[in-house]
Design a protein around this nucleic acid. Sequence first.
DNA 1: GTATGGATGTTCT
DNA 2: GAACATCCATACT
Length: 209
Amino acid sequence: MSSPSPIKINGRIGRLRRSELPEDTIELARYLIGKTLVHDIPDGRLSGRIVETEAYPIGDAAAHSFRGETPRNKSMFLKRGHAYVYFTYGSCWCMNVSAETPGVGGGVLLRALEPLEGIELMEKRRGVSRALDIARGPGRLAAAMSIDRSQDGLDLCARASPLWLGASARPAGPIGVTTRIGLSREAHRLLRFYEKGSPFVSGPRRLLE
DNA sequence: GTATGGATGTTCT
DNA sequence: GAACATCCATACT
C-alpha cells in the first residue's frame, strides 16, 4: 500500500472505438498490448497498461468456445469488444475480450497489467505492497481490477460502460511471442503476446529477452 | 531465486 | 469422476 506510482498520466485517455479493434482474434491479442484497461468503480478509477495477452481463436481446441456456445461461454460469441469473464480453479476470475463476428467464438485473455491508476486500491484488494505483484497473472489481474461474474458480457465499447478499453498511455515496445501458459491441448501454438522487457509480465523471466 | 503440490468450484464426460 | 486459460504456501538450492 505504499509503492509510489511509476507512471504519471497527463490528460484523459480516450476510449477505443469498436471500429479500431481488429476483428481477428490473433490480431486483436497483439493490438491490445500497450492499451489501457479501465474500471470505474464507486471507490475510484482502476486502470492498467496491458502487457500480456493470449489469443484463443476460431478452431483452437484449447478455446472455451471450441465446442460451441454454452451458458458459460456465451460472451465469447458476442460482437468483438465485449467482456467474457469466467471462474476457474475454484478461486480465480479471468477476463477476456471477445473477438470475431457475432455468433463466432473467439477471445483474448488478459494476463498481466502494469498498474497505472488506483494503485493503492489495487494493492489493498490484492493484499500486496509491490506494484509488480498486483496484476501479474490473469487471476490476479481480475482481482486487482475488481472484475468478476458481474462484468461478464459488458460491452467494453459502450459509451458509458464502467469497464472499458483506452488508448495507450505510453506506446508499446517490441512485442514478443511464446506458447500459452497452462494448456495441455494446442500447447505448441505461439499465441501468447507480451511487451518485451516489461517486469510486469507473468511467467519465467527468461522469456523476457 | 526455482520447484512442487494442495485447495477450490464449475463444467463437461 | 476428471479436467481445468490459477494461486499460494512451503521447501529447497
